[in-house]
């Protein structure tokens, strides 16, 4: 129905956004210090070899030409070839996207499943012990950096209690249970800040809704309190919560890089760091485009979900 049309219309509208992302990604790298050719050729390379490598990689051409060339291949779905490993960028990303994707999904799912109920109960029993505890914990969640939380969990849950592996990753092919077992610590680490964020927003949003007239109506109808809160109030409080989840996913991308290092996960975060150190332009650009695309797609989903949660927001 109408949703498909909206999806198509909005998808077209993200093209210019992605084009700008591409331009910025390209320029940022060209204007940062370091030269991939010099690194590739080694310390004792003679000037002629450097010129040859530069020409082979197409880096001797003027910047606009390089950009258009890259863009043209991008439009055909070709992310280019790694300068360092000579493998297609798409292959490199495909190899590494699994851990990143799975840890992102478990983190968001866990954060929503824990954060929303905490926020709801905190609002419902406003000023009670759970409210105060939740809000105090959420301040901690914001204040402590991700890597510190990571080492704390490793110390407590792996080294002391022996519940989860210290680090490493198992692919989905090893079984969902094994995958989740390996992802438990990274998920707990990354989640804390999102649980805090989502709980706070859910609490504020619900507190506002609980003062609305229709909540009074629901009570006047003799509905049980849990129905008043979860059915009448929570759905009305959903839009801000969904927005913050969307923003959370975007922020998550940054957090994943650090967490993957702490837990030694072979994901995109590590690939990013390695490529940056080697000035592997095509790979970095490719990763930025994938992250950018994911971010735009999530925003689109969030926007469309508004119309589901609130019929007054028309799908424009």
């Amino acid at each position: 129905m109408a949703v498909a049309g909206v999806l198509l219309k909005r998808s077209v509208s993200v093209v210019p956004v992605l084009a700008v992302v591409a331009l910025i990604a390209f320029l940022l790298l060209r204007f940062s210090s370091g030269d991939p050719v010099a690194q590739l050729a080694g310390d004792n390379a003679d000037p002629a070899a450097i010129v040859a490598i530069r020409a082979r990689l197409g880096l001797d051409q003027p910047l606009p030409m390089q950009f258009l060339h890259w863009l043209w291949r991008l439009l055909q779905g070709d992310l280019g070839t790694s300068i360092v490993s000579n493998q297609p960028v798409s292959t490199l990303i495909a190899q590494r996207i699994g851990p990143t994707l799975s840890v992102s999904i478990t983190t968001i799912v866990f954060s929503v499943l824990v954060g929303v109920p905490i926020g709801v109960f905190a609002a419902w029993r406003r000023g009670g012990w759970l409210d105060r505890f939740a809000m105090w914990t959420s301040v901690t969640g914001f204040a402590v950096p991700t890597f510190a939380i990571g080492y704390f969990w490793i110390y407590l849950l792996s080294m002391q209690l022996g519940l989860f592996p210290v680090q490493g990753y198992a692919p989905l092919s090893a079984g969902l249970g094994v995958l989740l077992w390996h992802l438990a610590l990274p998920t707990l680490t990354l989640s804390l800040v999102y649980v805090a964020l989502i709980a706070r927003v859910a609490r504020t949003s619900l507190l506002e809704v609980l003062n609305e007239d229709f909540v009074r109506t629901a009570r006047a109808k003799g509905l049980p309190e849990r129905i008043v809160v979860f059915k009448h109030a929570l759905r009305n409080a959903a839009v801000p919560i969904v927005s913050i989840v969307g923003i959370g996913v975007a922020l998550l991308i940054g957090g994943v890089v650090v967490t993957e290092s702490v837990f030694n996960l072979p994901g995109l975060g590590r690939l990013t760091i390695d490529s940056v150190l080697a000035r592997d332009y095509p790979v970095i650009q490719g990763i930025i485009m994938v992250f950018g695309g994911a971010y735009v797609a999530i925003n689109l989903l969030v926007d469309i979900s508004y119309t589901f949660f609130d019929p007054r927001i028309s799908a424009q």
Binding site: D213, R216, T217, R219, A220, G222, D310
Partner: peptide, 24 residues
């Protein structure tokens, strides 16, 4: 009281726009 509300005592309010749940 919950049993009585809605079944034995009905109530209507001033502002019919805000008194109804907008998403149901």
């Amino acid at each position: 009281m919950r049993e009585l509300r809605g079944s034995r005592i009905g109530m209507i309010f001033q502002e019919p726009m805000t008194a109804l749940n907008p998403v149901m």
